[in-house]
Design a protein around this nucleic acid. Sequence first.
DNA 1: AGCACGCCGACT
DNA 2: GTCGGCGTGCTC
Length: 724
Amino acid sequence: MKVARIALDVPIDELFDYICDDAGVRVGSLVVVPFGKRRIVGVAVELASSSKLPRERLRAVERSLPIAALPNSTMALAAFCSRYYRTPLGQVLLSLLPTALRRPGFAPAPPRWEFRLTAPGATIDPDTLPARASAARKLLACLKTQPFVDLHTARAVTGSAGRLLQRWQQDGWVERRAVVAEPERLLPDRMVAPELTAQQSQIVAQVSAGFGRYAAWLLHGVTGSGKTEIYLQLAAIAHARNLQTLVLVPEINLTPQLETRFRERFPGVEVVSLHSGLGEAERLARWTRARSGAAALVLGTRLAVFTPLPRLGLIVIDEEHDASYKQQEGLRYHARDVAIFLARESGVPIVLGSATPSLETTVNARSGRFGLLRLSSRPSAQPPRVRLIETAKHGAQTLAEPVIEQLRARLERKEQSLVFINRRGYAPVLLCSECGWMSQCPRCAARLTLHLGDGFLRCHYCGHQEKIATACPDCGNQDLRGIGQGTQRVEQALAAQLPGARILRVDSDTTRRKDSFLAMDRRIRGREVDVLVGTQMLAKGHHYPQLTLVVVLGADFGLFSSDFRAAERLFQQLMQVAGRAGRAESPGEVLVQTQFPAHPLYQALLHHDFDAFAEVILAERMRARFPPFVYQAVLRAEAVKEAAVFSFLRRAGREAASLASGMTVYEPVPAPMARLAGRYRGQLLVQSPKRVTLQRFLAQWHPRLKPGTSNAVRWALDVDPIEL
DNA sequence: AGCACGCCGACT
DNA sequence: GTCGGCGTGCTC
């Protein structure tokens, strides 16, 4: 008896045994099995000759999906994620597959055929065909004009093309072949590889010398120092050795740009990008090209890390510090960490690029676990001048006087400016001047943000919205004021201060539609815009040559957050927006409005000194025993009833305390957003200075959390959380 | 997770 | 008298 042990997409951390006598099932095969009343897709993980269960209780594998089995490297990667992130193997495996492959009815798209004349067929003169066979004459003539004609084109020539081609095939006049997956339109070789600086060449040489074995590198260089060029050159070397390169980027918005750059540099080479914005069929098609080894370069967001790559030779993680690499639901993996495992497993080098590396990576580079590659800025690209504008000295206006002056100056010089504020809407809260009432979300522990454009108060967490009250619901006072700054209010202030300026607001309110981001990008490039106002979505990637001034408002909020990572994120964000200014010939200027210009974070920013910043923060983290000096996991729970959340967490905490050895188990606390969409949320933090200790602890603790879960408490374990 | 079975309230 | 609420139990 042949038995396949199958991983299924169910929240049960077990494999299920099925009989699979009619062969064809291997480890990694995708199979359709009956499961209870339904049929689902699973992945064969082991093959055996017997089962613990009696034969009568086993059911049979129904069929294998017509697709190659997943390679061992992918199975190993899934096994690692399952273990490390405490998620059943089946849920890991099925979540990393293109969704099209999770349907039991999956069938590959039928091939598209194209036809050509055979040698005997080519000798036939259309004019010798009967005159009334006009369709046949036309089709034959068409076949003679080009080497291959696909069915679609043939049908356009004549409606009866299908029938004719079938007959001619039987007669031996034509032969057909499947159309090869449409290679993406290749761009002409417009981009010549620029001469590398001595430093760049040395880095390329150093990394490429280690091809074929694992090594992790931190490539530390500011915006514009030429990191992408190094990726390109390394990918070229990998390609020359017939190896695939995997490049991860944080966000979907960033892929098209980088994709273009790779395409231009690698004419005729198959470049494939993978991200969640793709349709099911497209995603599968590209995944298949990568999986078969046909695509030499695979670019993508975090999910691309799971793409099976048979001849993987190099991994690049661009902007490795970026929080979007961490999935925040379901399998809560960190694509950078998974990629490091993959690199180790596959014996390939991995390059982590950033101007502001995560502290985890910084520590790894300092300890020698990662090689450190420093890229100093090019002499041609002067770093922007940073100035701190102390708001106290300039009154309580939205925009301080020196800021307005600089904006005016850019306007006169016909240069562009960017005003960055990490809050959308008009004002973060509506306040009653009489009794102190504030607009509160009925379902969340959050204030409702004032949106003047359409007259609504909105919750930015759960989406709740209501019409703006004209009078205070508590005391009836009609003097309600929007307190604080949001993008809309800044936009309004700019319009008042800079008459005639063309202002464009870019935030998730104005960029809701799919293509609107590209449209805005075009307008900015076309210099139809003088001043850009936006949230962090403007901070990343795109650079505009005419942009010479960046103004940052409201940054101080990041200094005093309850999340110990807030300062790190603020610094990264500020360095990133600063990088937006003046990348072309004109040097840029960055103005930060703050009440606390002496704060070490701003002082480090002033001198573009990441190391000084890291020094301060790392000392703080070490003292307080925070990551990267400890490893953490958070048990998050939520329920409609607050008491249910905390009794669950307290029980879990007692359980943890009874197991703990070398672990610190904290008290359950309310989540930073203590109520969200009508549900109370709490969390319990556990940590250890050693990763293995944490992992061993979780392996014991996690299974014990399951019982007593019935009571409507939803919970999840987050290993290596990036938000607390 | 699904999907069934199973025992208690307001409706054709 | 039935439709249906979601509690609990199982799925190779």
